[in-house]
Each structure stands twice: as structure tokens, then as C-alpha cells.
Design a binder for these strands. Sequence first.
DNA 1: ATAAACTTGACAAAATTACTAGAGTATTAT
DNA 2: ATAATACTCTAGTAATTTTGTCAAGTTTAT
Lengths: 144, 144
Amino acid sequence: MLKLSTKGQYGVRAMFEVAKGYPDVPITIKEISKRQDVSVAYLEQILNKLRKGGLIVSVKGPGGGYILSRGPEAISIGEILLELEGPVAITACQDPASGCVRVDGCVTALLWKALGEKIEGFLRTITLNDLLNGSLREITKVGA
Amino acid sequence: MLKLSTKGQYGVRAMFEVAKGYPDVPITIKEISKRQDVSVAYLEQILNKLRKGGLIVSVKGPGGGYILSRGPEAISIGEILLELEGPVAITACQDPASGCVRVDGCVTALLWKALGEKIEGFLRTITLNDLLNGSLREITKVGA
DNA sequence: ATAAACTTGACAAAATTACTAGAGTATTAT
DNA sequence: ATAATACTCTAGTAATTTTGTCAAGTTTAT
């Protein structure tokens, strides 16, 4: 349960590759495709969304590619996923896009809200930098 | 992102209704269907899974229905969802059922693992009793 | 007996996911 | 200028998952 679509997964991995080139080496889609084993065409879609979301900038022409628009310590996993998959919305009730009629009468509404906030909070604390320098190992251990 | 299927959502709401009858009033599928606005046929599937998982017991014949097999303070939301939707598995890598080839080389594996554990931990702490007595309101506020 | 209520497995419509295809635009090296 | 590189954009589509329905049972209380 609570699966993340491949778009989100690939997106994070793609951003990890782009982050490696920060601040001055553009990474091409082709290169990301090779390193992360995701098709070029699919990555185009993903990176396009991330660009429109302002997380990366593109450089066209030979020698071009993508570069992080901010430092890797300033881009959280939460931001990446938000751009690719929209806000955390455990249930339709919690999705700002759809809304729910019963809200007040629904005993579980608070539960899903709390869970969603928990998840978002966690994802906001992890940045691309954490992926780059492997500091996740500690976070995982503590289980905080 | 990170949606929960209706099966899980309805399941929790159904368990909430069953919990109301604990320890001696069996609740029929028909009654749950009315109160929670979910079709009888679909509830049959859901409650069957929960029964096989040992969370509820069924009483056949007239006057029958479903009863919690343990007190509402001893049944967590996590257990309910686990039975209906399987373990939290943000990515296929994290799913014990499928596994992942690259695991070690995958920079994000630890991230999804940590997130999954965070979610499971949270869901384990919330019980049906919390839904019954409305103690969720505080949990939500604290944001702990 | 008979009606209430659960049990089970098969099946199907709808929605979502996970892509692929192809034509177009911008930039740079020569 | 021209060719090569690389990003941009819109559709379309196959596979999968979700979200159920249906029908034919079985069990039990009265």
C-alpha cells in the first residue's frame, strides 16, 4: 500500500544525477537514461515537469543538459515529488483538487490528515544533499 | 501522491462501525453499508479479508453479523490496512513480494525504507479506540 | 422449513500508470 | 549556412490496477 508511481521514483533518481553536476556541469537526458536505466522519452516528460516547477534549468544545444536551479541542500525530496505527483493525498477527502462532501461526518478524516502531514514533514527534511553524501544511513538508523 | 485505495479506506470505516458493537452486538454488512454508504457486495470482500486476517469474527444466521475479535484498543489502523492492502511499499524495491535487483546500487532505497517505517510506525500507534473516542484531535494538533 | 446473514470465486467496467512516437524548436561548432 | 546536439511538446496506447458487480452457495436461528 501507499505506493509511489514510477514518475516520482524516477524523478528523484534523475534529480540525483542532475545534482551531481551542480553547479556548472549540465547533465543530458541521455546520460541520466544510461545511468538510471530509464527511457529517454519518459525522462523528457519528467524533467520537463521539474523544469516548469523551477527545480532545474535547461541548457540547449551541444554541451547542454540540465542543471539544478538551486543548491542540492536547498531542494527537498518533498518538492520533487510535489511537482511530479501533486500533494500527498491519502484519500480524496484530503486532496485539495477534489474535496469531500462528508468531511465533517467522516471519523477518519483527521486520521488521514495527520498521516499526510507526517509524510510531508518527513519528505521536507530530506534534501538532494542527503542523497549525495549518504547521510541517510544515520536517519534510517535513528528511526526518528 | 501516496493514495490509499478505497478498499483500505472503506475497511477502516467498516471496522469503526463493527467496533461500535463491541463486545456483544454483531453488526451486519447491510447496516455498515447504510451507515458508511458502501455497497454490500464490496463490503463482503473487505470484511472477508479482515475475518481471514483474524481481526473480526462472523456470526451467521439471523441476528448475526461481525464482531471485533479483540478490544478496539488492541486493533491498530496499521493492522487493518496491512490485511487489506499488504505492507507499506513505497517502491517495488521495498516490497517483500517483488524485491529489487539493484537494491545496493540504488541511492534512494534507504530513503523509501525510512519513509515506509515512519508511516508504519505512525499507523501502529493509532487504534480503533482513538477513532471511537475522538482522541485524534489532539494527535493532529500536536503534529508529533 | 425458511429466512437472515455470511462465503466464495469469477468477472468486468473504469481509471490510472507507464510508457512510446513523432514532429518541432533552440543552440552551438565548423 | 549547415549539421549535429539537445531540449520541447502533444498525442496516443498498452498494461495494470482499482473498484466494484453478480450469482450461486453455506450456515444458523426460529
